[in-house]
C-alpha cells in the first residue's frame, strides 16, 4: 500500500500537485511519512556499512599510516641526533689524540736535543782535555830543551873563555875557575 502511495505521489507530483498537506498522498516529499521506513532502513544499511568499514579498515589503516610516518620522522631525527653526537665524540677524541701526539713529539724533540747537547759537551770537553795535555807536554819539552840549551851555552862559553885566555895570556887557567866565572857572568 505504501509503495502505491509512493508511486501515485510520484505520478501526481509530476503533474504539479505539490501543495497537499503532510500525510496525504503526494505530500511534499521531505515530509512524506510513507517513505520514512524505507529511508531509515536504507540509511541504516548504508551508513552502518560505512561505519563498519571506518571502524575496521579505514581508521586503523589511516591512523597506522600517519603513526608510521610520525614514528619514522621521530626515529630519523633521533638517528641524526645520535650520529651528530657520535661525530662530536669522534672529533673530540681526534683532537685529544692530536694534542697528545703533539706533546709527545715535543717531548721526544726536547729529549733528543738535550742528548745531542750533552754529547757535544762531552766531546768538546774531551777534546779540550786532550789539547791541554798536549800543551802541557809541549811546554815541558820546551823547558827541557831550554835547560839543555842553557847548560850547553855554559860549556861553549867556558870553552871559548879557555881558548881566549890561552891565546891572550900564557897562563893556564883552571877549568873549574873558568866555569864559575862564566856562571857568575851569566847571572
Amino acid at each position: 500500500m505504501a509503495s502505491e502511495n509512493l508511486a501515485r505521489e510520484a505520478a501526481e507530483a509530476t503533474h504539479g500537485a505539490v501543495d497537499t498537506p503532510i500525510g496525504v498522498e503526494s505530500a511534499f516529499p521531505p515530509f512524506d511519512a510513507a517513505a520514512f521506513p524505507s529511508h531509515l532502513f536504507w540509511l541504516a544499511v548504508s551508513f552502518g556499512l560505512l561505519y563498519f568499514l571506518m571502524l575496521r579498515v579505514i581508521v586503523p589503516r589511516l591512523g597506522g599510516i600517519l603513526e608510521d610516518r610520525r614514528d619514522r620522522i621521530a626515529g630519523d631525527l633521533g638517528e641524526a641526533e645520535r650520529l651528530r653526537e657520535e661525530t662530536d665524540a669522534a672529533i673530540e677524541a681526534y683532537e685529544t689524540e692530536l694534542a697528545d701526539a703533539r706533546k709527545k713529539a715535543h717531548g721526544i724533540a726536547a729529549e733528543r736535543r738535550d742528548q745531542i747537547k750533552a754529547d757535544n759537551e762531552a766531546k768538546r770537553r774531551k777534546a779540550e782535555d786532550g789539547l791541554t795535555e798536549k800543551v802541557r807536554d809541549a811546554e815541558s819539552r820546551i823547558g827541557e830543551i831550554k835547560a839543555k840549551a842553557l847548560s850547553e851555552v855554559e860549556d861553549i862559553a867556558s870553552d871559548a873563555v879557555e881558548a881566549v885566555i890561552a891565546t891572550i895570556a900564557p897562563i893556564s887557567a883552571d877549568r873549574s875557575e873558568i866555569t864559575a866565572a862564566v856562571k857568575a857572568a851569566k847571572e
Partner: peptide, 30 residues
C-alpha cells in the same frame, strides 16, 4: 517544478512485515 527534484521513486519494491522498505532513488544515493 522546483519540488520535483525531491520526489521519491521506488526502484525495487521491498515489503517486510507490512513496512515499505522499497529500494528507492534515495536509497540508491545513500
Amino acid at each position: 517544478d522546483p519540488i520535483h527534484q525531491f520526489e521519491v521513486h521506488p526502484i525495487v519494491d521491498l515489503h517486510v512485515g507490512g513496512m515499505d522498505l522499497s529500494f528507492t532513488n534515495v536509497s540508491l544515493y545513500m
